[in-house]
Computed example of a mutant assay.
Amino acid sequence: MSGLVVVGADGSASSLAAVDTAAREARVRGAGLRVVHAFLWPAMHVPRGPSSVGPSEGGLWKTAERLVAEAVDRARAAAPEVDITDAVVTGEPLTVLEAQSRGADLVVVGSRGMSGFVGVLVGSTAVHLAAHGRCPVLVVREEPSPEGPVVVGVDGSPAGGSAVDFAFAEAALRGCDLVALHAWTTWNAPLPPPKDASAPYANPPGALAEEEERLLSEALAGRRERYPDVPVQHRVEHSGTREALIEASRSAQLMVVGARGRGGFTGLLLGSVSQAMLHHAHCPVAVVRGAGARQ
């Protein structure tokens, strides 16, 4: 297998954890790894060299090079067999990493960077990339459960199919179980066709639950044949989607969600469920946009 994993590095503890994760992702994929640092200061017309009154080894550019070298060393320690390249790119981090995502199979970032504010649970770079990245974006939050499953939130929407595909592939690469979780309430479940045409709003007890079970089975159709070695657990829960996924993330090594789901509004690039996972999940979160995201 070949491909490219890109990781953003800014010297923060969060980004170094992302480097570790990205190196492991590149290793299991048989892909290359590119460590990227967005060098903002020249774009703001700040001199990048050393000060005339400071040491010759000083300066913003040298600092950026040291940050990248530290990240590369960290990646090599985590996955020595991976081909690693690096780049210091002038520009704002959101713009730089979005551009890098165009040629990548996966972009990995920390949940918060050097500019993170106290009390903010997830940084603007992570949220922006999840909404605008041209490939799946993996946001590294808390330390994952190493023996846990990959959990994918399934809502049956066409856009969510890409997230299901990604989750199956990740479970296969990691050699772990896949938990396909579909949560529903009477407020977000579409009504099944009535059994009695004379009473269009009447359905027998359990009809909604049966319909949601069918929705999950249809959403997974065909994937089990493509990934016969991936053990799959079907979970249909009568509860709020966000609450169910956050709870499932406690024992997961990865949570996978679509960027937008069944209740998404036109023009909204990131749905409430994916945003909730970025802010509150207890493991790394992969946000996968639907078909056409690379265009």
Rank of each mutant, 00 (worst) to 15 (best):
A104K: 02
A252H: 03
P193I: 00
R141M: 07
P231V: 06
L220Q: 10
L67T: 03
R66M: 09
G32D: 15
V127E: 10
P158T: 04
D86R: 03
A131W: 05
D155G: 07
G175F: 06
L173D: 06
P55I: 03
G292I: 07
D86N: 04
V236T: 08
S56M: 09
R294Y: 11
A87C: 02
R134Q: 14
A13Y: 10
V236M: 07
V288A: 06
T125C: 10
G175W: 09
V5H: 02
L173F: 09
G103E: 12
Q275H: 14
V151M: 11
G292W: 14
G32S: 15
Q233N: 05
R48Q: 12
E210A: 14
G119K: 08
T241G: 12
V288T: 09
Q100I: 00
R226Q: 15
H280Q: 09
G103R: 15
H234N: 13
H132N: 13
P50T: 05
A293D: 11
L129K: 02
T63R: 07
V230A: 07
A169F: 05
S15G: 05
L269V: 08
A180F: 04
A78C: 07
L269D: 11
I84C: 01
Y201W: 13
V140H: 09
A183N: 05
P93T: 03
A172Q: 12
R226P: 01
V108T: 11
E65Q: 07
V6N: 07
A159K: 01
V152I: 11
V35L: 02
V236S: 04
S101G: 10
A23L: 06
A99H: 12
R242H: 07
T90W: 03
E25C: 06
H45E: 14
G116P: 05
S274D: 02
C176L: 01
A167T: 07
D177I: 01
S157N: 03
R242P: 00
A79V: 03
Q100E: 15
G54H: 11
R214C: 05
V140A: 08
H37C: 01
A104Q: 03
S272I: 06
T85N: 10
L33V: 02
S239R: 15
D73L: 13
P190N: 07
S12I: 02
S124R: 08
L67A: 04
Y201F: 13
V256Q: 00
V7E: 00
S2C: 00
R260E: 10
V120P: 01
P144L: 06
P42W: 08
L67K: 00
P204A: 14
H280Y: 13
Q233D: 10
A18P: 05
F39A: 04
E247V: 13
V96N: 01
Q253C: 09
T186G: 14
V89D: 01
A69I: 01
G160W: 01
M255K: 01
A163C: 06
G54R: 09
R174E: 12
H132E: 13
G113I: 02
E98Q: 15
L106S: 05
A22F: 04
V82I: 05
V5I: 09
D20Y: 09
G161S: 12
R48I: 08
R294D: 13
A126D: 08
A131M: 05
A252S: 04
P193G: 00
S162L: 04
I246Y: 00
T21A: 13
H282N: 06
L138G: 07
G110E: 10
F117K: 04
V285K: 00
A276D: 05
